[in-house]
Design a protein around this nucleic acid. Structure first.
Length: 568
DNA sequence: TTAGGGTTAG
């Protein structure tokens, strides 16, 4: 590579020999190489300024690459601006500090500045950062013109540049173009192969990905992880597991991909087993396990994992917090909700992020802190469907069905389009508030929004009619369903039979329910209750209900529709 | 004549 002009420039305070002769430059260099945090970097920076080493080209460049590592592009720029004569290497480091997180227009104007002001033209180190920014933004036009520039500079034969180009085309979903480039590369390393494999995987072509994987001469951890994750994402857990077992050296990501796959498939036992096996768990691993349990209706287990993490003094991120909030919303304890709420704030989690805020509103609403839920909701600059649904559901659970419906009207006025979950919440609100006619109106309204009523919606309607004593109408509705009614719908009707003492229908419904879920004790309990209320004590014991409490909550539609979280 | 910069996975 050409030696940058700045080496001989008088503006460069430190000469070649003084790099060795200056003990302070040497000590700062070693401080920089052991720097592990942004705070540490700031302290070293203060040191650099105090010692008058800001113009030192090597130190400045190392400093900039650490800014890249800690995602501090603004910090990098402000320090770069004080360098009198940056050389190309320093320019490249600055570009690198911006590549991962700054918007593409910023990167492009930096690149143009580099071309104007760098003592020598851009080289093979310049383009990979520039291309990775184009890939991130999927800006095919900008990337293509960068490609043209690379050809003009004759840098396309460099393996880093070539690989970054392949990656660019595959991230823009141009897998064919990526493959053509890949085949034309004179030199390929593991990264080049991995990028091409990832291209096939993201286009759903596991077969081509696997044949490249088998064909390539040398694989690294990223290659293995990409292939495993590709299988997991396609739902092929068997192939994923086979590869995982074959993998010579696994890291946290290898484990987390599979843990996540098992958890999403509902196989919590396998997920937990691997989780316990994984030697270095990172935040993703904890998060996969916590959300896995939360999404599968096992909030207690989710909480246990969280506490284990908490006891290790690991600071949570927003993903962990969303999983935790979801678990707590299912537990429904106000005390726990209050603790978690303050825990989230104390840990500096950004609650203005949409998914965090939605989960926080949802938890507070479900745990009975409607005041807090409403305040959080009001704080949203633009309210979305999920938050509306959460708040509406909170009002509905806590007996304020009218308020829930008011919110629904407000939501429609704001121009938001309700989805299937919104309607389930609305119908439940009507049911709890005994608003039969309104409920029927909203059920009809679903047509207008082209939402086909699901079993859940029918279950809500059956509950609504049933509670109001319109058992026949409810039964007719179930019979009219195109989709097969699930246990929740039948259970709602059975609950209504209990309330209104309809033994005859109760027996018919029970028969159906016992077939559908023979192990659900709740159904037997309700039938027993129906007999008991009717003074038919002789029939009570035949349902084996003695050991169960007389709590019929388990068969209300709440049991099938209560966890909205899973829907989003 | 040595230092400092670049591409891949959840």
């Amino acid at each position: 590579m050409t030696a940058p002009r700045s080496a001989s420039s008088s503006a460069t305070a430190v000469s070649k020999s003084s790099f060795y002769s200056s003990p302070s430059a040497l000590s700062v260099a070693s401080l920089l190489s052991s720097c592990r945090s942004l705070l540490g970097l700031q302290q070293i920076h203060a040191h650099i300024v105090r010692k008058g080493l800001e113009q030192h080209p090597v130190l400045a460049t190392r400093f900039l690459s650490l800014c890249a590592a800690f995602s501090a592009p603004a910090y990098a720029s402000s320090s770069f601006d004080r360098i009198a004569s940056p050389n190309l290497i320093t320019w490249n480091a600055l570009l690198g500090a911006h590549a991962r997180c700054s918007p593409l227009p910023t990167i492009v104007s930096l690149f143009n500045l580099l071309r104007q002001r760098s003592p020598v033209p851009p080289d093979e180190f310049t383009f990979p950062s520039l291309l990775s920014s184009c890939s991130r933004s999927e800006e095919i036009n900008v990337g293509s013109s960068v490609h043209a520039t690379i050809l003009r500079c004759g840098l396309e034969t460099d393996v880093f540049v070539g690989t970054a180009l392949v990656d660019f085309y595959r991230k823009c979903r141009e897998v064919g173009a990526a493959r053509k480039l890949f085949d034309s590369l004179l030199l390929r390393n593991e990264v080049s192969w991995t990028v091409m494999i990832a291209g096939y995987l993201s286009s759903g072509d596991q077969t081509s990905a696997r044949s490249l994987f088998d064909e390539m001469p040398k694989r690294n951890v990223v290659t293995w992880n990409s292939m495993i994750d590709g299988y997991v994402k396609s739902g092929d857990l068997v192939s994923a597991r086979e590869l995982f077992d074959e993998m010579p050296q696994k890291d946290a990501i290898s484990y987390t991909s599979l843990i996540d796959g098992y958890a999403k498939a509902g196989d919590l036992a396998s997920a937990k087993f691997l989780f316990e096996q994984s030697p270095d768990k990172d935040l993703f691993s904890w998060s996969a396990m916590i959300s896995g349990f939360a999404q599968n209706g096992r909030p207690g287990d989710a909480l246990k994992i969280f506490l284990e993490m908490h006891n290790l003094n690991i600071k949570p991120d927003d993903h962990i917090v969303v999983g935790l909030l979801s678990a707590c919303s299912q537990i429904g304890s106000l005390m726990l909700a209050k603790w978690v709420d303050s825990y989230v704030i104390k840990n500096g989690i950004d609650i203005t992020k949409a998914h965090v805020l939605a989960a926080l509103i949802d938890m507070n609403a479900k745990c009975g802190n409607m005041e807090r839920a409403a305040r959080l909701f009001e704080s949203m600059p633009s309210k979305d469907l999920i938050s509306y649904s959460s708040l509406m559901q909170g009002y509905s659970i806590h007996g304020a069905g009218h308020k829930a419906l008011e919110l629904f009207s407000q939501m429609l006025e704001e121009g938001l389009l309700p989805d299937d979950v919104t309607f389930t919440v609305v119908l439940t609100a009507c049911s709890y508030a005994g608003l039969v006619e309104e409920g029927k109106k909203y059920f009809e309204l679903m047509n207008k929004y082209r939402i086909v009523p699901s079993s859940d919606h029918y279950a809500c309607m059956v509950d609504l009619l049933g509670r109001a004593g319109r058992l026949k109408e409810a039964y007719d509705l179930i019979k009219s369903m195109v989709v097969e009614p699930h246990a929740g719908a039948w259970g709602a009707l059975l609950g209504a039979c209990k309330i209104h003492g309809d033994i005859e229908l109760g027996e018919v419904i029970s028969k159906r329910l016992f077939e559908l879920e023979p192990t659900n004790a709740g159904n037997y309990v309700v039938l027993s209750n129906i007999y008991a209320v009717a003074d038919r004590w002789a029939d009570v014991p035949k349902n084996n209900s003695e050991q169960y409490s007389l709590d019929d909550k388990s068969v209300s539609p709440r049991s099938c529709v209560k966890n909205w979280h899973g829907f989003y």
